[in-house]
Design a protein around this nucleic acid. Sequence first.
DNA 1: CGGAATCCGCTCGGATACTG
DNA 2: CAGTATCCGAGCGGATTCCG
Lengths: 131, 131
Amino acid sequence: MSQGNIDVSEQVSSGEACTVLEALQRVSGKWAIGILLEASNGPVRFTELERAVKGISRRMLTLTLRNLERDGLLVRTVYPTVPPKVEYTSTEMALELYGSLRGLTRWAERHRDTITAARARYDAANAADAR
Amino acid sequence: MSQGNIDVSEQVSSGEACTVLEALQRVSGKWAIGILLEASNGPVRFTELERAVKGISRRMLTLTLRNLERDGLLVRTVYPTVPPKVEYTSTEMALELYGSLRGLTRWAERHRDTITAARARYDAANAADAR
DNA sequence: CGGAATCCGCTCGGATACTG
DNA sequence: CAGTATCCGAGCGGATTCCG
């Protein structure tokens, strides 16, 4: 843990690439987006997420949630009942991010086939001259 | 290599989380975005990228470029001159992505401080009860 | 100039088992 | 229900060296 200290000093790159890098570092990781999307409709519970994101392990769900909470994208609320109940709620900041995420989503939907085809072509060409 | 076969079968999650995951998997990785942003202004050469992205190693530049080329986001053009010259050009598909990327960029710019603060707070609270 | 190849540490991420 | 703990393999990513 505490691996996430990206050195931002001086690094300006293309003028904003550094910031984008930060954004992606925070939001990236196989699962963050899925969780954020799920949480954008209102508070969600741990088990809800576990089923909704589907494919995620208990471990990664916990880790990703902790990181999102750490960065202030989710708020964790514990209800001291029995059985225990924990809700994760998107912050205002996270909801703003949600807009951009949808952009990526629709882009991926539009070009899904194209990308798959491109990969197949590239791999075929590659396998050809590897032989 | 060739690890990128995410199982999309049946997996619909929140209706689009699966697609977003694909999008992010392709575009994620510490460097892809920086490179794409750089390439969006027109063809760029290898060495240009190496300086522009700043912080990237020669190895990761090569690897990321290969993956982007593989997915059809960049086109690699070799000019058989001496010294050799190679240009990377964004495809139409990549340029569409660029729009969404800017969204992320500006979001990150707006909330950079907030996130930093949130982290500090979280870490402080955490160190407190770890002791 | 534009890579490819190698070495090596670190982190990501899955599986499994245990807890309050 | 909502985690934590541990083990372990795979891939990411940096540094360095060599090549056409």
